[in-house]
Design a protein around this nucleic acid. Structure first.
Lengths: 275, 275
DNA sequence: CTGATGGGTTGATGTAAATCAATGCGGTCA
DNA sequence: TGACCGCATTGATTTACATCAACCCATCAG
């Protein structure tokens, strides 16, 4: 299988490219269609004005060197439901999420799927030693990413040692999150899993970037199915558990993707492992 | 709580220290007793003669700089069942396993435990951005580790950029393993989990270091309880599943910790997700 | 308007794995 | 020598969650 982003067909750098979906729900049936907007040439303030730079790995690049960064970055817009990293495909690029939410997942041959994480703005994607991606990635809502070719990234790493240290930090953080998730998947009950998830989402919303949720109000961009695949449950169990939490006065379930946390302490007791 | 290896009480570098267990099965009831063998002073060939150096992060240090490594490393022997990293304790040191097997785990307040990985010789421990350990570590059999203080490690990283890149590689590898484990814990059946585990152990044995297992013969150092805590199952289910595999002619279960893989293909079909 | 489609909730039923329980076996220690 | 303990195996029973199924409600295309 050829690279998902073949070097020969790559769009000129620093242009804006858009990966459209012909059918919002299909995945990898066809190669993403690419529309290049912009007209080539490097925009010097491309990275300087980036909203997620302060919280992303790019923050370690000094303002004076920002142009180096902009030279190798290609901004890409991905429409909802569209996959842009295919598990097992040759790993040609790294990504930095600048807006929207991405789901990362692994799948079994028969279709069972485990979402290994959700990537919010500022998140760095593609860390893998192997020459192929160990996971797939799909846009949940409309997503913007900065794309770096592996090759170019290597040059950056050589020139900016701080970047390497920052990536190590990023990887370590992910490792800690992964260990927490293993504990959740291996040893927590359904109620504990959902409680942990809601608290994590709350926590994630409090971080810089993203509108800060006030009054325990959460806007979850993912479907019940995504939550189920993330927590190792079924859609029905997630739905039932949320209903049970509502009945217990822990949360309020709004229309669509809104959930309000009414009692953080109750959820914390649950998440810590008291049935 | 004070550091597990308080700076004030630290043994002189490059000596051999031994953490003994008064009671083999107890964990963290008391601080490890330390016996310093050796008499101080740096042994120049300490790292040069290290059996796991070729496969560990230390391999990136040039032979000419080996003494720098030996200066900051303290070899420690840990007796079976003894914990040497406590979850939540201040993270003061990094470790490199040189012999034996370590289990890494996280626990819930009520005692439920998830083993997040087994660390074999060559494995690097302690990657965490936080100032406290996100996981605990305990020796399964007699374990030897090289211990580096966080502080000294920082200096090494400054002086040897290659080391940093190697650590990033190590972290990326662990991330891939963690993602695989999430898929296993979230979506695989008991049989699939045990099959995956046996194949992984086989694979790990084939890597450099460790005696290569011949004829599918495995020597698992961990108990059924450890396997259960690693796979998110109970002891009984692990035992029953192994018995079932034996009945199917997939494996042979020897006395003690010996298991022989009779039919790798059958296990692979299972592990890939066919019931 | 109308049928199709995707997401969500809730109820009835099934089942894989947990729990409870008994037994054996090889150390170790008094 | 016998009592004890950790580890493992196997059987009987329970249960948390999955599965199967019905239904509601938006949205969207024709």
């Amino acid at each position: 299988m050829s690279g998902y982003f073949g070097a020969g067909t790559r769009a000129p750098e620093s242009e804006l490219e858009i990966i459209m979906s012909d059918m919002p729900s299909c995945q990898f049936e066809s190669r993403p269609r690419r529309i290049v907007i912009g007209s080539g040439g490097v925009q010097a303030d491309f990275c300087a004005s980036c909203s997620v730079r302060p919280t992303s790995v790019c923050s370690v690049i000094e303002p004076s060197d920002i142009s180096r960064l902009a030279e190798v970055a290609v901004e890409t817009i991905i429409s909802p439901g569209r996959g842009f990293i295919e598990e097992g495909a040759p790993a040609t690029d790294f990504f930095n999420v600048t807006s929207g939410t991405v789901k990362l997942f692994k799948a079994l041959p028969d279709g069972r799927r485990q979402i290994t994480g959700f990537a919010a703005p500022g998140h760095f994607l593609g860390l893998a030693v192997s020459d192929s991606y160990a996971f797939g990635a799909e846009a949940i809502d409309t997503v913007r990413v900065c794309r770096f070719s592996r090759e170019k990234m290597g040059e950056l790493l050589d020139d900016f040692p701080k970047l390497e240290r920052r990536l190590l930090e990023e990887a370590s953080n992910e490792l800690v999150a992964a260990q927490n998730q293993m504990l959740l998947l291996g040893r927590k009950t359904a109620r504990e899993r959902v409680a942990s998830f809601l608290l994590d989402q709350m926590q994630a919303g409090l971080l810089p970037g993203q509108p800060p949720p006030s009054g325990g109000r959460l806007h979850l961009p993912m479907t019940r199915g995504d939550i189920a695949d993330y927590l190792g449950l079924t859609i029905e169990t997630v739905s039932r558990t949320l209903s049970w939490m509502r009945a217990q006065g822990m949360i309020e379930v709004g229309k669509g993707y809104a959930i309000t946390i009414v009692s953080t302490p109750k959820l914390e007791v649950l998440a810590a492992g008291n049935s």
